[in-house]
Design a protein around this nucleic acid. Structure first.
Lengths: 212, 212
DNA sequence: TCAGTAACTCACCAGTTAGTTACGTGATGC
DNA sequence: GCATCACGTAACTAACTGGTGAGTTACTGA
């Protein structure tokens, strides 16, 4: 019994680099989303992908490498063209809507984002900031125009709006998860109702009143 | 050179179990807040506390043990007595204010909370939920009374309000951190302004209007 | 048909990490 | 003085974890 390479080799799984890579990436996404970077185990990713661990190192170099790839894959979504949505109000609405669906379409993304936000890892943080930049630039431009046209109030603050948007969406999806895991259904809170409220809050920060 | 126990033994450090325990707890709080449970290293906690690692096991059993203690220490803050604040509006304001200062007074707490919220660890999650229960109960009662008296609208949802409150505060403090680390000052966003907005948002969810 | 190579597997290392053993030390009561 | 015991320490271990060296399998085209 030499234990030599009598490959088990399921006939179903072809030797397809592209597919293997994709499987690894998919598995890594799930594992990183579940456990965070520090909590994720390389072996767990490999096992989940039903791929030999060695392949991770072949394709992605190291654990950091596949983590970055996972992030990059999600974050490289281009938001909007600069000159779309001439109407600032419509543009903000579209941005909010886009961001909300970005998270709702991909539950793992919200968790990855949250882990990344917490983690002190400089590189991951940098990726995150860089990827957020286009959307933030777009928002900044829109708000500037809105202020100029008098649609928004003069002290509207893009970073404040962005923080609010991210916080509420992340909180919605994450606590949502926690509740789905804990209770039966999903609380009495529909996505539509949440989005309604989100619009209100965001516009309150842009065009809102003075005091409480 | 036997390497035997020629104890370095700084004469300054007394043998004071209470103090050692406290030092460990303080260090553990910082480390867990920085790196999360999975990322935290027991040795790092011991080193930071300038206490021998063995003491962690003597006082807290294991890593989980000291983690639980750290959580419990922060979360065992009793919120409000049931019958305070006869006026529902004032009660909600007080609750929001209390929660905000809970986090702002202790930056580590916000991070611990966020890590705990993300982590799949059943026990930590349970602790967190249990500790949130009193405040949530208080809020539920207040809202029920407010609805009965007509001060709040009938479909006001305590869990929705709570989620919103937590999301916004957590987001505020965490992204705040991220920004302080990245940029110079702290963005143009004062605690007062944030609180103002927070009141508005919360009351909007309780007594707000109909549509966007 | 067979050499070349991309895709893959196996078995293992070296460093780390949670947890333990065995011992030393100082304060306290008698 | 001395027995005793809580407090503290250094050195250790077993298991885990990221990472690698070296070989194997199957596809390709000439």
């Amino acid at each position: 019994m030499t234990g030599k390479a009598r490959t088990d080799h399921r006939p179903g799984r072809a030797r397809d680099a592209q597919a293997t890579r994709a499987a690894l990436l998919r598995a890594a996404t799930a594992v990183f989303a579940d456990d965070g970077y520090a909590g994720a185990r390389v072996d767990a990713i490999a096992r989940r992908a039903r791929v030999n661990k060695r392949m991770i190192y072949a394709y992605f170099g190291d654990k950091q490498g596949i983590y970055r790839e996972v992030l990059a894959a999600r974050l490289a979504v281009p938001p909007f063209s600069k000159d779309e949505h001439a109407d600032p109000r419509a543009a903000v609405t579209a941005l909010v809507r886009w961001y909300f669906h970005l998270l709702s379409d991909d539950p793992a993304f919200a968790r990855l984002l949250a882990w990344g936000l917490l983690s002190g890892d400089a590189h991951g943080r940098a990726i995150m900031r860089a990827s957020a930049a286009p959307a933030l630039d777009f928002l900044t431009g829109v708000i500037r125009r809105g202020v100029a046209s008098g649609a928004f109030r003069s002290d509207a603050n893009p970073e404040m709006i962005a923080t609010t948007l991210v916080s509420l969406c992340l909180g919605y999806f994450l606590q949502h998860d926690a509740m789905v895991a804990a209770r039966g259904p999903r609380g009495r809170w529909t996505d539509e109702a949440f989005l309604e409220g989100l619009y209100r809050v965001v516009f309150d920060g842009i065009a809102g009143r003075g005091a409480a």
